[in-house]
């Protein structure tokens, strides 16, 4: 039991670190496509946490990625922080709901990507009190489907290779 607990904690720490690194690496090396659409590589880590560990752990990984990621970039509690927090919050909710209804990894990933775009747009609408930005939503929604498929395929192929958290019996 203790071994399993330790393994879960280690996996959680590693996934949180992976989420932070992926989010930072993406912002530095890839950047948004057409100025607005991100691939969302960090979502792979959140998705793995959800399917491998559980919903509570997914929330922790997502929160770490927003908090530490923005702390590294020096944008904490600024406008980009709230926009990313809004996206992660809604995508977390959507992915948890998809997981609750026992959806496939691919679908959970796509729904997460779509909800992330919607969450960010809603925050910008609120931040700028500018409902006109909603015009960007159809583009983001259509763009989120391929990025969600890409991260979903990566996450499901990693999930197949992850070892069981249960300890192997000694005898």
């Amino acid at each position: 039991m203790t071994i399993e607990k330790n393994r879960r904690l280690t996996a959680l720490a590693m996934l949180s670190a992976a989420a932070v690194v992926l989010s930072y690496a993406e912002s530095v090396f890839i950047g948004p496509i057409y100025g607005v659409l991100r691939i969302g590589l960090a979502n792979i880590a959140s998705l793995l946490a959800l399917k491998y560990l559980g919903r509570r752990e997914m929330v922790i990984v997502s929160a770490m990625r927003v908090l530490i990621g923005n702390l590294i970039r020096g944008t904490i509690f600024g406008s980009t922080f709230w926009i990313s927090a809004g996206g992660v919050f809604l995508s977390g909710l959507a992915m948890a709901a998809a997981d609750y209804t026992e959806s496939t990894v691919l679908f959970t990933s796509i729904i997460g990507a779509i909800a992330h775009s919607v969450g960010q747009t809603v925050v910008v609408m609120f931040f700028y009190r500018q409902p006109g930005i909603a015009a960007i939503l159809p583009y983001l929604l259509l763009g989120s489907v391929p990025t969600g498929i890409a991260t979903g395929i990566i996450a499901s192929s990693i999930l197949k290779r992850l070892p069981s958290l249960k300890p192997i019996p000694a005898d």
Binding site: S27, G31, P32, Y34, G35, V36, V124, I133, A135, Y139
Partner: peptide
């Protein structure tokens, strides 16, 4: 991040996307 400049040209004939510079 140059997001606003990368959004490129916006025109009344083809799109009504707002250009946003956070």
């Amino acid at each position: 991040n140059h997001v606003c400049a990368n959004m490129g040209w916006m025109g009344i004939s083809d799109t009504i996307l707002p250009i946003t510079c956070i």
